[in-house]
């Protein structure tokens, strides 16, 4: 378990990471796993939607890049998630100032500007999850 952060993740807390830059995705996913989260990786919004459509996959937080290739960007994915997976917290991240400003309307605590420190992402997740009432005892099922 991680010694990187002051507060470790609770068992079963799951983060869906959506990022099209593979090395960045691997890096943040590895960091969050080291913090104790269960992490699901998606390379684009289509993959993320497929994951989010699985009712047996419990997901607590969607962490998604704003600007990415494909029909749906991070804003679209956040809106889809708001409409179809209520109760799931969304953290957006991006570089373009316009996109970052607009993202403030779609996630609770404003976007995480890129490049980001992984610790900042972990802190943001902890803050969001700490504000929640406990809702389930176990994490996601092992197999989809």
């Amino acid at each position: 378990m991680s010694s990187r952060s002051g507060q470790a993740a609770k068992a079963g807390e799951t983060v869906l990471v959506v990022e099209d830059e593979v090395l960045l995705r691997l890096s943040i996913a590895a960091y969050l796993r080291d913090c104790g989260y269960s992490v699901i990786e998606a390379a684009d919004a289509d993959e993320a939607v497929l994951v989010l459509k699985q009712p047996d996959l419990d997901i607590d937080v969607l962490f998604t890049e704003i600007e990415k290739p494909g029909a749906m960007d991070g804003f679209g994915l956040a809106q889809w998630t708001r409409a179809n997976r209520r109760g799931l917290d969304v953290i957006l991240t991006g570089t373009a100032p316009r996109a970052v400003n607009a993202a403030a309307n779609l996630c609770e605590d404003g976007p995480v500007p890129k490049p980001y420190e992984p610790q900042l992402v972990h802190d943001r997740i902890r803050r969001l999850l700490a504000a929640r009432p406990p809702r389930r005892p176990a994490g996601r099922p092992k197999k989809p």
């Binding site: 990786e41 998606a42 993959e47 989809p144």
Partner: peptide, 10 residues
Amino acid sequence: EVLTRLMLAD
């Protein structure tokens, strides 16, 4: 296939 990848990675 993301769900297959997830299963194998798990």
